[in-house]
């Protein structure tokens, strides 16, 4: 289904927003204003953007340690996300979760996750809940290439398949499990090949092409929502930064990085928009300016937010 100009520009805005957000986080992280460690989504924006553009209110996403992009694409508050990453009281999780645990359950965002592969059964359960409660919802699980080696991948895809759950497993194959390249960590090229083992369709798409991702996800989400069961989509992509900020990236060469930067999803989509006469340079610039302003506001919001009160240390361990 062809997208309108407005939808196309929204895709761009969303990707730009993620890019701007992540670059800003990188900047403040390097300045020492952000504690802990952060895993940035720069280079992979097309996946979250293309998938989430297909979602409805009742749908769920389960994310990964590299989750900022997923949250933004799902519509989480940029102010609250930024404040959370800064460890402030007004963060999504009152400053108690941090970068790897940003969540907004109300939005169907089941959270980033510090455990690689942990989102797979969570999304499976969310898909089960949607089916059980007949909400017509679907659950998306974003997961990396290395997660596909975990038992959770196997168990979750199998269970989702036998229970015919409305789950779309979106593999973000950025070619590395931390330092271990895909060719070293598994003897297959396409993770989508594994779908067949669980009796579900598998698709391979260019993860740096937001339109391609959008279209694949559109098909899979439709199928799942219609009760057709789970689908595995493999999005081939690449992270421009290291596994985490500060990663010296000794495991990959500049040539490889440059090759992938040449395939950066943002310029590619801008070119396409211009080729398709969907957007002028001025319109793109206008979006970029707006986005910069929004992210700058988010930083201001975060920096103005107080640190959590010490009472928060032991609150929220249990629900009342």
């Amino acid at each position: 289904m062809a997208l309108s100009k407005e939808q196309m520009l929204d895709l761009y805005r969303q990707m730009r927003m993620i890019r701007e957000f992540e670059e800003t986080v990188a900047k403040f992280f390097s300045q020492g204003q952000i504690p802990g460690f952060v895993h940035l989504y720069i280079g992979e924006e097309a996946v979250a953007t293309g998938v989430c553009a297909n979602l409805e209110k009742q749908d769920y996403i389960a994310s990964t340690h590299r989750g900022h992009g997923h949250g933004i694409a799902r519509g989480a508050s940029l102010n609250k996300m930024m404040a959370e990453i800064f460890g402030r009281a007004d963060g999504e999780c009152k400053g108690k979760g941090g970068s790897m645990h940003i969540a907004d359950v109300e939005l169907g965002f089941l959270g980033a996750n510090g455990i690689v592969g942990a989102g797979l059964p969570l999304a499976t359960g969310a898909g089960f809940a949607a089916k059980y409660m007949k909400t017509n919802g679907v659950a998306i699980c974003f997961f990396g290439d290395a997660s596909s080696n975990r038992g959770t991948f196997h168990e979750s895809l199998n269970m989702a398949s036998i229970q015919k759950l409305p789950v779309v497993f979106v593999n973000e194959n950025n070619m590395y499990g931390i330092s271990m390249s895909q060719e070293r960590h598994q003897n297959i090229t396409d993770i989508a090949d594994r779908a067949g083992s669980y009796g579900m369709p598998g698709m391979v798409v260019d993860g740096n092409d937001v339109m391609a991702v959008y279209e694949a996800a559109e098909e899979a989400v439709k199928r799942a929502r219609a009760g057709g069961g789970p689908v595995l989509i493999e999005c081939k992509t690449y992270r421009h930064h290291g596994h985490f900020e500060g990663d010296p990236c000794v495991y990959r060469c500049d040539e490889e990085v440059n090759t992938w930067k040449a395939k950066d999803p943002l310029p590619r989509f801008v070119n396409r928009l211009q080729e398709m006469k969907m957007a002028t340079e001025a319109e793109i610039n206008q979006i970029d300016i707006e986005v910069k302003k929004i992210i700058a506001d988010a930083v201001e919001f975060a920096q103005n937010s107080p640190v959590p009160s010490l009472d928060e240390l032991t609150s929220d361990v249990y629900c009342d």
Partner: peptide
């Protein structure tokens, strides 16, 4: 629901379903 021998998926999906309201 009878589950396959998949304790991870049993427990993990239960967590997901619980967060989703079940």
């Amino acid at each position: 629901l009878d589950a396959p021998i998949s304790e991870t998926a049993i427990m993990g999906s239960a967590v997901g379903a619980a967060v989703a309201g079940l």
